[in-house]
């Protein structure tokens, strides 16, 4: 119905276990998060602290990815508890 939950997404979610999804796409997203956070840390250093635009641009990705990271970790933990 929406761009986030299409038929293909629904079928992928129902076909695979969350463990499978989190070890594939979940891990890819977390690696991207680490990469973007590292960039966010490096940019002000290389530019001697004068990089507000770059930091704002990277924040567009950092915060959503951090939320996804939290969801992935909690879901995996819940999976183990169940």
């Amino acid at each position: 119905m929406t761009t986030t939950v299409t038929g293909l997404v629904s079928s992928s979610l129902t076909q695979h276990s969350y463990d499978f999804l989190s070890t594939h796409i979940g891990l890819a997203v977390i690696i991207l998060l680490a990469f973007v956070m590292l960039l966010r840390e490096l940019v002000p250093i290389v530019r001697n602290g004068d990089a507000p635009l770059q930091v704002r641009g990277l924040d567009v990705a950092v915060l959503p990815l951090l939320i996804v990271f939290a969801i992935v970790v909690l879901a995996r933990l819940a999976d183990l508890l169940v």
Partner: peptide, 27 residues
């Protein structure tokens, strides 16, 4: 310190290792 994102980045690395690579122990 200047590295304000560093604790979060390192926290992510630590938690990822525990939640992905220590499943036999965690379970």
């Amino acid at each position: 310190i200047r590295l304000r994102m560093m604790p979060i980045l390192l926290g992510v690395i630590a938690v990822v290792w525990v939640s992905y690579m220590t499943v036999p122990f965690l379970s």
